[in-house]
């Protein structure tokens, strides 16, 4: 189960990387970046996960909090931070793409080069 989980998250990240390298459309690159982020975040959470462990919230029924009882909470906190950072980057990138489109009327960084291939 554990292997499946982190394989999936890494494959997701690799799909994002592939998209970022292969695509020319700025919006598609941004979406690829978001997929990459999701994959990396999933990887972080997955690596702290364990089937036997519980949600990291102390309740009366659990009694004494011992590290063994809980899923590792630190990657979850890190992922919380990285999600917000991803949001910030996406917002700035969208504003920039909008500005670039207004200026040039194009959504690719090299407008002339790939028009022959029928790509916009």
């Amino acid at each position: 189960m554990f292997t499946i989980l982190y394989t999936i998250s890494l494959v997701l990240a690799l799909i994002g990387i592939f998209g970022m390298i292969s695509q020319k459309n700025l919006i598609k690159i941004l979406i690829s970046l978001n997929i990459l982020e999701t994959g990396v975040n999933l990887f972080l959470v997955t690596a702290g996960w364990s089937a036997e462990a519980k949600v990291p919230i102390i309740t009366g029924k659990l009694g004494l909090p011992a590290a063994v009882n809980f899923v590792d909470p630190l990657p979850q906190a890190l992922v919380l931070t990285s999600i917000v950072i991803g949001l910030g980057i996406t917002a700035v990138a969208l504003a920039l793409i909008l500005r670039y489109y207004r200026k040039t009327g194009s959504l690719t960084l090299e407008p002339s080069e790939f028009q022959a291939g029928g790509e916009r």
Partner: peptide, 20 residues
């Protein structure tokens, strides 16, 4: 399998002390 958390290496991480 040592990337795993949980029963394998609970106390060795800095988060162990944070949980406790």
């Amino acid at each position: 399998g040592t990337l795993r958390f949980g029963p394998h290496s609970p106390a060795s991480r800095i988060s162990g002390a944070m949980i406790e």
